[in-house]
Design a protein around this nucleic acid. Structure first.
Lengths: 342, 342
DNA sequence: CTCGCCTGCCAAATCGATTGGGCAACTGGT
DNA sequence: ACCAGTTGCCCAATCGATTTGGCAGGCGAG
């Protein structure tokens, strides 16, 4: 059973392929008899005609295909959300995602881009698995590109990133709103936009309340559960123990839970905890469930596609590229309460 | 800067496009002068010629593109591994993955398949996000298809699934090897291949050791941390407390950890725990780190592509479809020890 | 010198769409 | 009856490759 093509429709409708094309694509400036149009539409529908995108792409050089390059799909559960967002947004324009991940290998990356271009993608999403500054491969300059969860040094390429500072501020404000005044910050040791931004947000929130920043309330360690455990333990055993902890991410929060458990500090009665990232596997399964700030992965994927689509259609009229910063929403669960005795 | 095509190469090499095509594709039965061949190859390389896959696909109806349909990319971190495996295996054949996830919506699914076919994919990977029996959409019958982490009722379509029974057996055997005799099974309530297979494996391992199966050692609840907590608590407070727990998955194990903590049973000194799934976010971050049985997601993705590739190239000579069952390996961490006093 | 056979290459058709440039047929005014 | 202007449609070229079926030219044999 061969697939039916435009000629089959044309034959069945008693017109030429040209006319069928004009009608199905609603070409402007072509005059078509209403009756003919109806017939063709009906016949096309009856036959279940689906234009061959290869042929169309060859002719129009629009393939309705977008490359999705990432430096590591497998390593983080976040990736899925970005993809999902991109996909959902893409489906509105009938865009398909061509996935490729390179593990960060520049050689592989070059090949990947070449391959995508060979396939005639309309554009490329270049996604990082954690928010960072990336070097944009030169080849990408010749293709519509949007950076996801990453930005370039120069701002020649549009990008979509989370608002780390607002997120950090939200986290701290949430604790402040419950009446906490001594809030520990369990952070990580890497100098990345996330740590910097979240710290800045934390400080900003304190400043708004007129609370002075106390470096003794900040403990840095590796950004995993053991690191969180150590950092939290340090803060919780210090002279003036904080009544709440803002953890750089949910993994560190998981460690903080253990520290609190060991020290006999029930959460949230004696210690409030807020995380970051909203890794549901952790935040939903901890006990009590962890309140946290979510990264807008889904939205980043969706917005990235929107930006890309804009670049594609308004081809080449690029001023300074859009650098979009997306809000990190609070996810309220059960790990925050007011401090025990004020 | 227009992309350079086969004609450009032909012109630069002073031959026809036909000849260039013959040479670059190493067409059998065509006689080509060695010198000409060398020239063309050199010129093609110098110009950086990359054949347009659209044009080629249009002519040959091989696009080197595979559709990846799943019922939920976002919901599980496993997906990434499957994709990664498929991608890595695919890259050996220059295959690209066209991602689409449908959230299980049959309507969306139909559209997705149609879209993929329009794009001329060489085949389709139909992936489930957890091991189960699926109904294969009728449209897929006309396209080479492989089921991933799923199997069809009839075995008309090739599939790749994990060996749940072997995995369950491995888990139980590991505990038995440490000298445990009373092993609790914290399982879930759904009747899916995973629960059935793992239970069967557990029973088989016991039988091998001549230990009688004791239904009192099996507790079922929801397959999340709270469920695991409740089930584990039930077992650990029962008359003859088990010295080890085999948990249906890592989330339930996470709950079991909490139960053990509350009951003052240090892991692994007083209680050994083994999980399933190897969700690193959990198993690596629990304390002590959780020994578990891994699902072969990466391998499933890779094998699926291999099977698909086989179907594609040996077109249509299908006997009964291959149903591949992949081994679940043990991942040893720190949650297992010998029972305290034997 | 001619015939047949290789050797080495190429012209043209093809895949399935889109698209610019017409071309008949009809209409209406004179 | 003639002409200009519409209307409604189609021919043929095009996108960039692959593939079929030759075609020239050289060479050895007769």
């Amino acid at each position: 059973m061969k697939r039916i093509g435009i000629k089959d429709v044309a034959a069945a409708a008693g017109v030429s392929a040209t006319t069928v094309s004009h009608i199905l694509n609603a070409v402007e400036g072509k005059r078509i008899n209403a009756e003919t149009r109806a017939t063709v539409l009906r016949v096309a529908d009856e036959l279940g005609y689906r234009p061959n995108k290869l042929a169309r792409g060859l002719r129009t050089s629009r393939t309705y295909t977008v490359g999705f390059i990432s430096d590591g799909i497998a390593t983080t559960p976040h990736a899925g959300q970005i993809i999902q967002g991109a996909q959902d947004a893409g489906s509105e324009h009938d865009l398909l995602l061509l996935m490729l991940n390179t593990g960060g290998d520049p050689e592989l990356e070059r090949k990947a881009i070449t391959l995508l271009i060979q396939h005639g993608v309309d554009g490329i999403l270049y996604a990082s698995m954690y928010h960072r500054i990336v070097e944009v491969p030169a080849q990408l300059r010749s293709v519509p590109t949007v950076l996801v969860d990453a930005s370039s040094g120069d701002s020649a390429v549009p990008s979509v990133v989370p608002d780390e500072e607002q997120g950090g501020k939200t986290a701290a404000q949430t604790l402040l709103a419950h009446g906490h005044r001594r809030i520990g910050f369990v952070t990580n040791v890497d100098d990345i936009p996330a740590s910097r931004g979240r710290l800045a947000g934390y400080r900003a929130a304190l400043a708004d309340e007129g609370i002075e920043f106390d470096p003794a309330l900040v403990a840095a360690d590796r950004s995993d559960a053991p690191g969180g455990y150590r950092a939290a333990r340090t803060l919780l055993t210090s002279a003036a123990r904080p009544t709440a902890l803002f953890c750089f991410n949910d993994r560190m929060a998981m460690g903080a839970y253990r520290a609190a458990g060991e020290l006999g500090l029930p959460i949230p009665a004696e210690l409030s905890v807020i995380g970051f990232d909203n890794q549901e596997l952790i935040s939903e399964n901890l006990h009590p469930a962890l309140s946290t700030v979510a990264l807008p992965h889904y939205e980043m994927g969706a917005r990235a596609i929107a930006l890309l689509q804009a670049v594609i259609t308004t081809s080449e009229i690029t001023g300074p590229a859009v650098q979009e910063v997306l809000r990190c929403p609070l996810v309220t669960r059960d790990s925050i309460a007011s401090p025990s005795r004020s």
